[in-house]
Design a protein around this nucleic acid. Structure first.
Lengths: 317, 317
DNA sequence: ACGCTCCATACGCCTAGAGATATCAGGTCA
DNA sequence: TGACCTGATATCTCTAGGCGTATGGAGCGT
């Protein structure tokens, strides 16, 4: 692919003239006077090296060389027009693809509404939704495998990434119905000291895990972990079978099981933060759009935690 | 298709930079300094309205908008390069299509050699060969249905067309072997006065037909036409069956039939001219090439008859 | 801290070319 | 023959932009 020799404007003039086969009309369609058009065509012919039109008095016609060039010129112009439109659509965020990672438990709370709102505001955008736990989300953001993550307890030492709290959820105790504490309306954390725990593995969400353990420690005991399970559904099911109790974000109360009770926790200062995460330097305007959607989605719960909420990504100085 | 907004040169720079992802290298590949390249890209981004590259220190990458534009730009550049090459090939006559009409009898004489030579000199050219009689050839030339005709006895009143004699053939008498004149080596035209004639219909080639009748008239008799046939093969076959005699260009001696004798004619000044015909104003360089080939093909029989052999078509002032 | 790499900026020069107006030349038709 | 249409030419203006050199400034490695 060498240095292009044919100015696009001349090609446009060429195509129009090829359609009109009349210098005056073509010039009118191009919005210019006739002599400039003659010049354009002449210049173009000069660069091609051959006549493109036969001008016999009375009628203008394409030469074989012109007939050969015409479809290529048409395609090129159409391609560019389409490409430009597509690039603008993507650039402005009306179109494109956004890859979102989310923690499974959020499928019960923030995710559905967020997706619905976003799809409504940006119907041209294709959303790739990937269920994944917190740590892989951070890795995937760095890998550029996803563009946005929805996770619990965002880390504080990720300079490349931005975070914004979306939701601050209280904890609930997850108890078998048969458990004595299930009779109470609220449960004090210290009351769980003697029960075995069913929890997510630490690797799934280290900070979230540590937070739970920290809450217990603050309440004066070290939780005895009887069993790990990677999904909240499983955790609840195991609790139902009497294997132990658990602490979970309030949102998982949507998992309704006959033998399980969810009880408010005291002190109720214990809360998990659900956050969106993104690459701070991401050019994709859709990331900014998603963040804006998140803000509009729940304008109530602004915590403004860590991560500079500075300039929305996509805007360049 | 509106007025194109993206200069091709900038698109070229864009594509190269998208491949190199390094301003310095891309500039080197383009043969320019680095700052101009930065400008080009900046200008292009300005026209698109969005950043096409993300310049994080250390690495240059495409933005989603850039990724969207890239294939379109590639296609456009490739299309134009191909189209330009094709147009130049056609314009210079290295490539293209040439539609040739020819009288059936010439398939026995000039046509094969002409085609062979032309194909050898211009292997990239596609030849469309159409067998057709003289009058339709003239019409087809005007219609632009064919580009070149090969016919007998070119007309003299066709201002739009050019003609050049290719071959000047003597006449022969076509006789049944049983005919008394078949015993002679040469036949005087007047000797045919009493025999019925088998000829082509006048409509097939009016001037050729008139020439034959004229020859007879000059020899002192009016030929009695017993039968018409549209092809020389048929004429000879009819002669063989004894239906009559005929006068034909010497070339048709290639049609060998057991019961037919071909005899030279006196006076031997009687000759048919085979001519090429073309549109005088034809832009197609292949027409000029064909005429040149005709000239080289038989540099012996130049008669330089009518039709201006002036400037070869395809050359414009 | 220094230098190196890499990209952006700032000027300045200069040509290509897009546009306009005025005019000419060939052809057609009344 | 003279109006008229159509395209080509001549000339002028103006500016977009392509390219260069010089320089700035951020990151990174030694």
């Amino acid at each position: 692919m060498e240095r292009p020799e044919l100015p696009l404007q001349q090609l446009h003039a060429f195509v129009v003239l090829a359609e009109e086969l009349h210098f005056g009309h073509a010039a009118a369609r191009l919005g210019i006077a006739q002599p400039p058009l003659s010049q354009q065509i002449r210049r173009l012919e000069g660069k091609v090296g051959h006549a493109l039109f036969s001008r016999e008095p009375g009628r203008v016609g394409l030469t074989p060389a012109g007939r050969e060039l015409l479809p290529a010129a048409r395609r090129a112009l159409a391609d560019l027009a389409d490409g430009l439109a597509a690039a603008r659509a993507v650039g402005s965020g009306r179109t494109g693809r956004l890859r979102i990672g989310f923690a499974a438990s959020l499928a019960l709370t923030v995710l559905p509404g967020l997706l619905r709102t976003f799809r409504h505001r940006f119907p041209g955008v294709h959303l790739d939704i990937h269920e994944m736990t917190s740590a892989p989300q951070i890795a995937a953001l760095h890998d550029r495998t996803i563009d946005v993550g929805l996770l619990r307890e965002p880390p504080t030492d990720e300079p490349e990434l931005g975070f914004r709290t979306v939701l601050s959820e209280p904890f609930v105790a997850v108890l078998p119905l048969a458990h004595p504490l299930a009779a109470q309306r609220t449960v004090h954390l210290a009351q769980l000291a003697d029960s075995p725990f069913v929890l997510l593995p630490r690797a799934v969400g280290p900070r979230f895990h540590d937070q739970i353990v920290g809450l217990c420690t603050a309440a004066g005991f070290t939780p005895r972990i009887a069993q790990h399970a990677v999904e909240w559904q499983t955790v609840c099911a195991l609790v139902e079978t009497g294997l132990g109790v658990s602490l979970a974000p309030a949102g998982i109360r949507r998992i309704r099981l006959k033998g399980v009770a969810y009880r408010r926790i005291t002190p109720d200062t214990a809360r998990t933060r659900v956050a969106v995460a993104w690459r701070e330097n991401d050019q994709n305007p859709l990331v900014g759009h998603l963040l804006a959607t998140v803000s509009h989605e729940r304008p109530d719960s602004h915590d403004r935690p860590d991560g500079l909420p500075a300039a929305a990504p996509g805007s360049r100085s």
